[in-house]
């Protein structure tokens, strides 16, 4: 078993939280993992990415070679396209469709969505709207995690447990919202996955 994942978004959108939850789940299952993170200046509203590698065999590189990632998980549509050279031929792109516009020359969102829809394997959802429905827009990243969960080759209840553990200090209410967000994301993929 191996899953090489590129997580993409804008600084502050919570991709490290997604990585932590998947990483924690993998670690609990006794799998090997390497997760490279972004710290420092780019966290201030710049594009950020994290390479997350999970395997039942020892992992060599902290970075995923180009064309070898199984998944791109993005919390922002433009960012879902930035790391395409990293994705393997049968790889999936799971992304939010809600743009984060903090630059003057942000491309037209319709053009971006057209690019995403032209990809052979993609799941695209408005994570913010779904997160709002379940209780908080802040859980948008967890909606995306839920949408990506069927591709992770991990037991769903293990991911749920990881969320319970990681959010334990934020209180029961926030934990419950994030669990709902996870389920909502997963339901979207189950209903919309074409193949």
């Amino acid at each position: 078993m191996k899953r090489d994942i590129i997580l993409a978004g804008v600084g502050g959108q919570g991709i490290i939280s997604i990585a932590s939850i998947i990483g924690f789940t993998a670690f609990q299952q006794g799998l090997y993992m390497k997760q490279s993170e972004v710290h420092g200046m780019s966290q201030r509203g710049g594009n950020v990415q994290s390479n997350l590698r999970i395997s039942d065999k020892e992992i060599a590189s902290d970075l995923i070679p180009l064309g070898k990632a199984d998944l791109i998980i993005a919390v922002e549509p433009l960012e879902s396209l930035r790391y395409l050279p990293g994705l393997c031929k049968d790889g999936w792109v799971i992304t939010s469709t809600k743009p984060y516009v903090n630059i003057a020359n942000y491309p037209p969102i319709d053009d971006i969505l057209k690019e995403i829809k032209s990809l052979p394997h993609h799941i695209a959802l408005d994570a913010e709207a779904i997160a709002k429905d379940v209780g908080s827009v802040k859980a948008a990243n967890i909606v995306i995690l839920g949408a990506a969960s069927p591709f992770l080759e991990m037991a769903f209840e293990n991911i749920e447990n990881a969320i319970r553990f990681i959010f334990r200090k934020k209180g029961e209410e926030i934990t419950a919202i994030n669990l709902k967000a996870l389920h909502a994301g997963r339901d979207f993929t189950d209903q919309n996955r074409a193949n």
Partner: peptide, 26 residues
Amino acid sequence: AFALGIEETKGLDIPTLMVNRPPSLC
């Protein structure tokens, strides 16, 4: 890989609409 003469494994190209997103003040 290139230095070892091993074949390149690149995925799809980045779409031409891509723009930079530099960091900015909060």
